[in-house]
Design a protein around this nucleic acid. Structure first.
Lengths: 339, 339
DNA sequence: CTGTTAGCGCCTTCAA
DNA sequence: TTGAAGGCGCTAACAG
């Protein structure tokens, strides 16, 4: 423990000349319900102020069975800006409701994860946000069934816990809309393979992309396969271009792929956006660093984190089963101007 | 609160046929000191296991005055990988000592920061790590004087709290060594201006760079001024090159500057590393995404976070006033091979 | 309108 | 070697 000497409720009561009960009622805002005289209230509040009274959270928790803390357990915290944005959003919402966040990082190790969740429960957190840094279908660890839980950026269909995920289908449509707004209708290709396990983003985005293109009476030409990294995207795109690919628009599954695509296009003397328009997903800092600035459909991590904590702490009976947070387009200069 | 029904110490005692005191002693490892019979101990431990007993942290804290939590307050949590690496490192160390971390983000607002620190103290955290995302000289908020505190990536010389910072001087020398190892001795320039307020990294690195170059009987040619962002570095470098600059080696104050430098060099048809060798500071993900991979002197954020928590929770009397964590070179392909 | 009383679950001094 | 009792600081029945 830390800080200067603590003042107790009793000392406040003594100074105000009332009992501890009275002080408790007044300071917890139940004074009207008890109809305590205005002057007493003034006196008590003043005494609390004078003594700089701070309630002891342990004592309070012991009684109320609420610690005013929530656990946030994620596979990766150090995973760049996404993880930290989730924390920021979650923290913002938590602080707004006078809660703190206890963080836990499992590093993707299921055993460590189980330990972590158990430790959080042992700490008597008011609830747990179970987060993944990649949008994923999964099976929740069974311990979480005993705990108030919200899933963040992942989804176990068979779990009772609500889930907060990005609206990747709508995001897919938004990506196409960005291209269409630049007059790019034909020669649109996708870059990025389906990831190994559980990832749901690509499938949903692809549905959105196909539907939006179909509405414009056109369709995707090909899919350039590569994992979602800079060098892989670079290599795959170079090969695609050298084997005769002549794209007008490229939709990249994330900003790192887009970076690799930029490198490949530069190498093949194709200019963005004059020759090829590029759109991607993530809305990471990277998008702003590339030249020309990349148009990217943003993953709303901060909003998702905030929403998850809201759900966790809300007392509503009728919570939605799954919340899809909309993705908005962050406009750069990588899509041709129309005309 | 969350989780299934709680088992109390008394229930364990009842099942083992002893008193709560005995159980407490045994479970807290003070059994030998009390010389409790081996069989009793077995019986008690088994009972605790059978009932899946978990001590109530609030009750325990109320008595012991330790909450087994530490606060981590930073100006930015959402600031990319650095902030999250500090959290990861801090968390790792905290978990290793059976503590949890409560995060706080001030967004650089001093009022919010004071509120946050106060809230952390009110929560009875065992200590506070006060962190900055940019290495900075500053004045600690006075309220921290009442709290056990460690400074992370910042330094208030007049404060009693120890500080953990990167060893930027040594990092500067390491950057030069990387160039020297590639046979680059002359024509070395620096890219990146002194930042506005409090930042200490550049000055220390510059000292290290100058000393290391002097040891090699050479010196920095010029300093290309720009703020530490991609577009600024790009613009400044283009201008430098167009006005006749013919560098052989460029030392960039961070990886984003290096990215801008790459863009500028490409535009001016200069190749990395054949024409120009590039070294930078940060060791961020970005360094691995650039082509060719960037050689970068890594900021050891995770190690620093861990060290800070170690210091905070250590009971050593003789704590060092300031810990400088070494920076290591992450080798890419942006420095010419010797020969 | 206010005070008395009784715990929340745990640790720890003291007595046996 | 073990148990009884008190209290950490707070909240909430229940009296008055």
């Amino acid at each position: 423990m830390v800080g200067s000497r603590r003042v107790t409720l009793h000392e406040v009561a003594a100074r105000a000349g009332v009992s501890a009960t009275t002080v408790s009622y007044i300071l917890n805002g139940r004074s009207d319900q008890m109809r305590i005289s205005e002057t007493t209230q003034q006196r008590v509040r003043q005494a609390a102020l004078d003594l700089d009274y701070r309630p002891n959270p342990s004592a309070r928790s012991l009684r109320t069975r609420s610690t005013r803390t929530v656990g946030l357990v994620s596979d990766l915290l150090a995973g760049g800006q996404f993880a930290s944005q989730m924390i920021t959003g979650a923290n913002l919402s938590a602080r707004g409701q006078d809660h703190f966040i206890l963080v836990g990082e499992s590093q993707g190790d299921p055993d460590l994860e189980a330990l972590l969740v158990q430790a959080l429960i042992d700490q008597h957190v008011d609830g747990i946000v179970y987060a993944r840094v990649i949008t994923t279908d999964l099976t929740l660890p069974p311990i979480l069934a005993t705990s108030r839980t919200v899933q963040l950026n992942c989804f176990d269909v068979s779990a009772a816990a609500p889930a907060v995920v990005p609206d990747d289908y709508q995001g897919g449509r938004a990506a196409v809309d960005a291209l269409l707004a630049g007059g790019i209708r034909d020669g649109v290709h996708l870059v990025g393979s389906a990831p190994a396990a559980g990832g749901t983003a690509r499938g949903l985005r692809l549905d959105g992309i196909r539907d939006a293109l179909a509405s414009a009476r056109t369709a995707l030409v090909t899919e350039v396969g590569c994992d979602w990294s800079v060098p892989a995207a670079y290599a795959a795109t170079v090969e695609f271009l050298e084997s005769g690919g002549r794209p007008r628009g490229l939709i990249c599954m994330n900003d790192r792929i887009a970076m690799g695509v930029y490198q490949a296009l530069a190498e093949c003397r194709l200019r963005v956006p004059d020759d090829v328009s590029v759109v991607s997903f993530d809305g990471s800092e990277l998008a702003g660093w590339l030249r020309p600035r990349l148009t990217s459909v943003t993953l709303p991590y901060a909003a998702m984190g905030a929403r998850a904590v809201d759900l966790l702490l809300s007392t509503e009976i009728e919570a939605p089963r799954v919340v899809r947070v909309p993705m908005t387009v962050s406009h750069g200069l990588s899509v041709r101007e129309p005309g």
